[in-house]
Simulated scan of single mutants.
Amino acid sequence: MELSDKKRNYIFWGLQLFGWSFLNLLAVFVPKNISWQLTLYSVVIGIFIGVFSTSLLRYYLKRNIKFESFGGRELIKIVVSILLASLLFGLLNVFFGFIYVHFGPALTDAELQLYRSYDNFWIQVINSLFMIGSWVVTYLVIKLLLKLNQDRIERLELNTTLKQAQLNTLKGQINPHFMFNSLNNIRGLMLEDVEKSREMLTKLSEILRYSLTKNNINDIPVREELEVVDNYIDLSKIQFEDRLEFVKNVDADTLDLRIPPMVIQLLIENAAKHGIANLKNGGRIVLTITREGDNLLIEVRNTGKLKIEKGSTQLGLKNIKQRLKLLYADKASFDLQEVSEEVVANIIIPMS
């Protein structure tokens, strides 16, 4: 999940307060025989100095360091900023130590001994270098992790967008290309049976509506796909008449399972166009849908032989394979083969 700038600021200030509070509480409880006034003063001032100096450092780093094109110049800037922040850190420690010694309660011998180490400016600077250096390393590591996470999210969003664009393109290509033939067949039917031709026009419009409205959907119930298949078969029978026999074996428990739209319809269309249409006496198309465990099995058999016509691009079948791969990766499968004078198409779709 990508963090907003507001959330990042909340996290930064939370970590700042927690980190400097922990370090200063740890530091003041190590020396013995220290008054509660000096303890409280040291903790509050220590937190203030740590938060103030590193917040200024963060402000500088955010506006002057180009993390996207990190190089030698950025490294020099970071080193210089660490030195300057350490000087500020040391100066503030010496200054507030001076304030407490001269304007605070009288110091005990143990407190005076402790103050001598804090009164040395260069000792404070060396100590500050370690503290600020550790802070910068931690800050840069967190910054790097956030950048890697953002890049990962952007890659995922880009892949998702590309996949959706590919799917929409494939759906557009898969839209039934038999529409023009159906219109011509219906026009001829009008001379014989006006009522039936009106019914066929309704079925054709339903297929068109289905094709358009489901263009942005990746899955639909099997029962909806079967309605389109039935409409397609009825329209095809205008052309094939008694030459086309259609058998449907669909298990009732598969009707509400979800599949990519237009996949079964395209298999039926392929069987009719490349199988039945090439047979003088016609043939049979058998659709079987069953469920085995966590997989949905779709089989379309048609009378005929598996042969690739000259000039055929096999675009429809390639589109099915691509759509299944985009939606299910390697979990789904599609194959087409000839078995005992029949062409058999099998699709396996995972349901989990």
Rank of each mutant, 00 (worst) to 15 (best):
A252E: 12
L204Q: 11
N231D: 15
E341N: 13
D330I: 03
I217M: 11
E241P: 00
I126W: 06
R301K: 15
L297T: 06
R243A: 12
S197T: 05
V94D: 10
N295L: 03
V51W: 02
L148N: 13
E245Q: 09
N218L: 08
D242K: 14
I238Y: 04
D256Q: 14
L327S: 04
A332K: 01
N231Y: 05
S197E: 07
N9E: 07
L326P: 01
R301P: 00
A332I: 03
T313R: 10
I259F: 03
N249P: 01
V51H: 03
L255N: 09
G311H: 08
A106S: 13
Q173E: 14
L287P: 03
K325L: 07
S81P: 01
K143D: 12
K32N: 12
R323T: 14
D330G: 02
I289M: 03
L208K: 09
F246M: 09
Y10C: 07
Q166G: 04
L148W: 10
P221W: 09
K318L: 10
T213M: 11
L129T: 04
G275V: 10
H274P: 06
L3C: 05
T202N: 09
V263A: 09
T108K: 05
R187C: 02
D151L: 11
L167Y: 15
L279I: 13
W135V: 05
L129H: 05
E74P: 03
D253I: 07
R291H: 01
T161G: 06
Q37A: 05
I347N: 03
Q150R: 10
I174T: 10
T213P: 00
Y139D: 12
L57N: 09
K331D: 04
R58M: 06
Y232P: 02
F121W: 13
V137K: 04
R301G: 02
L15Q: 06
G71E: 12
N295I: 01
N281S: 13
H274F: 13
